[in-house]
Design a protein around this nucleic acid. Sequence first.
DNA 1: GCATCTACTGAACACTGTTCATTATCTTTG
DNA 2: CAAAGATAATGAACAGTGTTCAGTAGATGC
Lengths: 203, 203
Amino acid sequence: MSITERKERDKKEMRQAILDAALHLFREKGYDAVSIRNIAEAIEYSPATIYLYFKDKNDIFFALQYEAAAVKRDHLLPVATIVDPWERLVEFGRRYIDFGMKHPGLYDLLVIIRAPMESLETQECWALGLSVHQFFEDTVQACVDARYFKSTDSKTIAYTLWCHAHGLVSLFVRDRMRMYPPEEREEMARKSFAMLLKMAEHL
Amino acid sequence: MSITERKERDKKEMRQAILDAALHLFREKGYDAVSIRNIAEAIEYSPATIYLYFKDKNDIFFALQYEAAAVKRDHLLPVATIVDPWERLVEFGRRYIDFGMKHPGLYDLLVIIRAPMESLETQECWALGLSVHQFFEDTVQACVDARYFKSTDSKTIAYTLWCHAHGLVSLFVRDRMRMYPPEEREEMARKSFAMLLKMAEHL
DNA sequence: GCATCTACTGAACACTGTTCATTATCTTTG
DNA sequence: CAAAGATAATGAACAGTGTTCAGTAGATGC
């Protein structure tokens, strides 16, 4: 069976080569500015070949979105080993922001919507994101159970923290902080995170 | 001079007709899914005609972005009459969120970046947004001056509040709240805003 | 060695943004 | 009122796009 095995390996490698080239180009020029022909040229194959591995251009996009979601999960889930729920929550937040600042391209990818939840890839990607979100909500619930907050409305607490973190990252990623000097932006993010933690103690 | 006047009026009307048709189509199908030919068809003119009124497709986009920024400003700036800085700030926040929820298409438009600050439209649009942001920061400063917060770091305070509001709106606008039932989403936003206000009192 | 199957491609189709020479219409002048 | 000039609108074209499909070269199985 080594031949069929090799063939399958080749197929996966080709698929990955397309994804790698596509991600590289997307991050450089943006999704819509990259053509199938550009990707084909990058991997030195004909445009038609790409359609043997992906249904269409959106399919490539969804595959990348899934990859980004996986990277995000791998970046966040290690905090699961932290026993104390408050410490776990803090570290989760820190890593969430860290992920966004380190991989603005991936974060942006995750927030773009294309064609309302049609493809299987989207479903899978969504399911992955959902499980991470569930972990986050569980951690908040654990904090509530351990009386770390005065409020017991863990749903609203989680949502509020999420708003802050997502807002912070997405202002950064979408370049909405041009009124602050570039070298200050990261420190502002750190300060704001620290401020939110202080505020959260009075929740 | 009534003829030249009428001509200028016609020109403005035509320009506006193009913008109206474009906004309608963009909000319905997204920027990239709308073609110049679609817009031309909507206003019942030839595609080439559009280029007599706009440099290119991006120019239309920037004009719409400017319009959205103006709508946002008109939605927010009435709070300037509120004398008490804290009340002014609260009402500003409420209206900011209200604007985003009521006009998701416009909010989204404002957050999209196309071609890094090239056109004059962008500059104008950015300047408009900046002045509103300045008003917001001034209001926060006024709150600090009036000892509404323990902290005196008005810059970080403003940024933190902004993160929350923008995060809240953009999670809503970009449909990242699919894990919550649709009918709950607005209430969650309200609750979270209230929670942030409570937290801010301990700032 | 031959048939089958697989991976790949060139050419085509209908679309896109954009330009430009040409036409049609309105305004001004003689 | 007619001719000249200015202006507005367009059809046709160009190079690019996503996508499909008949056809081909080469590896695989018998």
